[in-house]
Amino acid sequence: MRNIHGALVLLILCAFGAQAEVSEVYDFDTRAEEQRYQNLIAELRCPKCQNQNIADSNAPISKDMRDQVYRLMKNGATNDEIVGDLVGRFGEFVQYKPPVDKRTILLWAFPAIAVVVGVAIVAGVAIRSRKREKEESALSPEELARVKKMLADKDQQA
């Protein structure tokens, strides 16, 4: 039993080792630059292993892309230029955040549209049911008196 535990722990440690292999060593002059690099590679998607960003992926193509990001950063490119360069090579697929334009506006606006429509539906339902309540409670004074009496009788019985 003890041995099995040991083996399991070892296995888990191995898994961590494999994960840690991904990062290469890049030199940055400032902490901010490094942070910028990390942000960039976190929002670029690996074309080969489609559900990973290039920061997490250890596919060779992701390494090439990280190298390119680093190279362009060193040449003083802006974030847009760097992303544009990779999109020019691999297509818009590599961007996790698609740009807002004519084709993607529905995609971007959909959450807001969904919220507005949802609020409208809820409001509609609430207003309607309130209206109906008013209409239904329109009893004549005699009827109201009868209701009161009936309820009072019932209370006494109980």
């Binding site: 074309p47 080969k48 060779p60 193509i61 090439d64 390119q68 090579r89 691999f90 297509g91």
Partner: peptide, 12 residues
């Protein structure tokens, strides 16, 4: 080095 491949957007 895969440089032309990279420029062509080859991913596999």
């Amino acid at each position: 080095k895969g440089s032309l491949g990279f420029d062509l957007g080859v991913y596999g």
